[in-house]
Amino acid sequence: MSKVVRSLADLKPLARELAAARLAAEVERERVAAALRLAEQERRVFELTVGPVTPLRQVDRVLHEREQPAPEPRQREADERAVLLQALSDEIDIDTLLDTDETLSFRRDGISLEVVRKLRRGHWALQGQLDLHGLRRDAAREALGQFIHDSARRGLRCVRVIHGKGHGSPGREPVLKGRVRRWLVQKNEVLAFVQARASDGGAGALMVLLNGTT
């Protein structure tokens, strides 16, 4: 009988441990359930605040990639303008380079007199022109260099440069007339030039022949 009593006494601590374990498990279940309820409330906080929400209908969309603008070579263009400006000198002596006819025409070595005559007669169609009226010396020099460069690159054959007759200049002297001739002689793209015919500007303009088959 005493052995049975001792056995029952030994079971009491075990029973207390089992009860404590059940209580702890119940507490953990309640904690997890409470955390899930709180998470659901946070997920639906907007809906719970403003009322029932109807999801928007899904619409298929096509996303277009935005085309990037082409880079602008500003530094290269600035460098080219500087080279064009520096390359054309006002000091060069061109008297020996001009044909001593009534218009002081110019033809590069290897260009025949017949080419000059054709240019004077308007053999080549006029494809472009530059008007230097109102420009100061440096601006006119830069504009002319850029114009000749761009015209030759585009494949133009015959262009007109209007430098004016000097009627509006101090002393009524054609300030740009002589300079334009100096600048053109220094441009390798220029094969020849002559004074324009009266109908094309006369003494206030030059007809210029650029690189190409003559």
Rank of each mutant, 00 (worst) to 15 (best):
F147G: 02
L184V: 10
G212S: 15
L210N: 11
D200F: 02
L210Q: 01
Q127S: 14
R160F: 03
L88D: 06
E30M: 10
R121N: 14
K118F: 04
P52V: 04
N211G: 09
E47L: 07
D99F: 04
A70Q: 10
V115Q: 07
S112Y: 04
A82T: 01
Q186R: 13
V27F: 03
R160G: 00
A125W: 02
R37I: 03
D131C: 10
R120I: 03
Q68T: 11
E47S: 12
C158F: 06
V161L: 05
D200Q: 13
D138N: 14
E173C: 05
F46C: 01
Q86W: 02
L38A: 15
C158N: 10
R66K: 02
L36E: 15
D99C: 01
T214H: 12
R108A: 15
S2A: 09
R181W: 00
V185C: 15
L88R: 05
P73M: 07
T54A: 05
R117F: 06
V53D: 02
R197L: 12
P69N: 05
Q195K: 11
L85A: 14
A125H: 03
A78I: 10
L209T: 06
R22T: 10
A15Q: 13
Q41F: 00
A25G: 10
R157E: 10
A70P: 05
L8K: 13
R44H: 13
K187T: 06
D79C: 08
L132C: 02
R157F: 08
R182V: 01
R31H: 06
T100W: 00
D131F: 10
L132W: 03
L85D: 09
G145F: 06
S169R: 13
R157N: 08
E65P: 01
V32L: 08
V175P: 05
L48Y: 09
M1A: 13
L11P: 03
D79P: 04
V194F: 01
R43L: 07
R154K: 14
E77N: 03
R136V: 05
E91P: 00
R181K: 15
V115F: 00
A9D: 09
D79F: 02
E189P: 07
D60Y: 04
G168D: 10
A196E: 02
R31I: 04
L191E: 08
R136D: 15
H133D: 08
G204E: 07
H133E: 14
A203P: 15
E80L: 15
A35L: 06
Q68S: 12
L104F: 08
D109R: 13
L14Q: 11
E91L: 11
G122P: 00
S7T: 11
R43V: 00
T213D: 15
T49G: 00
F46K: 00
D109Y: 08
W183D: 10
L206Q: 09
A152I: 07
G178C: 02
G51C: 01
D131P: 04
K165A: 05
E67D: 08
I162D: 07
V59T: 13
Q127T: 12
A203D: 14
D99A: 12
S151Q: 13
A35K: 01
L97W: 03
H133L: 11
A39C: 02
N188W: 05
G134N: 04
